[in-house]
Design a protein around this nucleic acid. Structure first.
Lengths: 182, 182
DNA sequence: ACCTAATTATTAGGTTCCTAACTATTGTCA
DNA sequence: TGACAATAGTTAGGAACCTAATAATTAGGT
């Protein structure tokens, strides 16, 4: 019932904006096109990523959490630190941890010093899942990038970093809301 | 309470995979790095996009639907066609239309010929929202792409298309599930 | 010491996405 | 014609995200 994500379509979701570039002469049509391609490729990549991870019995968000928990030692991470490293809110982390704990992949234990803090531990099962999933996942994304030449990779990374810097600039001076701390 | 998305962080969400490239010699470290940068830039772009659209009083999904409804004539689109064009399921379209209808931006009317079909109409308010939001939005994404030279834009689009083709190849021969029709 | 601030984690409620199941209608074809 | 399949749209239930409000604990200032 579901087509392979957006993969096989021309530029369906975003094509409408290309219309606009004709009606608004002040718009840079090339910018528009580049933007849409970028948005679309990002979408597709994320979608495939979810698909792969799902077929391996996990999900993107959970997998990233397990990786982080594995990288840092047992009991070293707290929900707040996970939120900080992943860039999602603590509320989201709470939900993800609920799922991981329910599946027996992660354990929550109170910190003896500071009773506000919860310390997180990867279980044996969590570690095994990681060992099982990681090779296939790494193989997959390597094969996605494989067609790019060394030059193309350099170009791409350079351009992406330029864009990230630009996004950071634009993000820094947003209307308002958020920005509790500098 | 919420930091400006992931924008100001080094490579937080994905850095963990870079560790792996050291432990798994068969992994292409450069592929890994490129992949992470791409995933991250896509994430950031989408996040900022949501942020902009939110500050303008709408959301990405809804906005795209309104654009599509505007592009095609009144009553020309059906929920199924929107699903097809946007790449999300019909169920998702139902939910989005519920929201848009509740806000009085869109109207659903039964097709007189085929009583299974619902025909969609942009209301006056829907059209006004579009007129209000579109210029700012277009201005925004133009300014995101602005720092890229003409050469860089060409390179980027070329590389992205290469990747999309690759993703389509890889997606075509997935384990199983889905693929009801060729 | 005590009252207020800040911090940790969670819960509640909303959004956008999914799959799967369902209803209503239309098309097919034996 | 009459059963069966296909199609349109929705509903139900779940996941990952959000904001805002909450409870518990710690830290700071006077």
């Amino acid at each position: 019932m579901r087509e392979p994500v957006t993969l096989l379509k021309s530029l369906p979701k975003y094509e409408v904006f290309l219309e606009d570039s004709k009606r608004f002469p002040e718009l840079d049509a090339s910018a528009c096109y580049v933007f849409l391609q970028l948005l679309r490729t990002g979408d597709d990549l994320l979608a495939m990523d979810e698909l792969i991870l799902s077929s391996l019995g996990t999900r993107h968000g959970r997998f990233v959490l397990l990786m982080l928990l594995h990288k840092h030692g047992p009991g070293e991470m707290t929900p707040a630190e996970l939120a900080e490293k992943t860039g999602v809110t603590r509320a989201t982390i709470s939900g993800l941890l609920d799922g991981l704990a329910k599946d027996g992949l992660v354990e929550r234990r109170p910190d003896p010093q500071d009773r506000r803090i919860t310390r997180l531990f990867l279980t044996e099962a969590g570690d095994q899942l990681l060992e099982r999933v990681r090779p296939t996942y790494c193989e997959w994304f390597t094969s996605v990038i494989a067609p790019l030449t060394e030059d193309e990779r350099k170009q791409l990374v350079f351009i992406l970093q330029k864009l990230q810097q630009r996004l950071a600039e634009l993000g820094a001076r947003l209307p308002d809301s958020m920005h509790t701390a500098a």
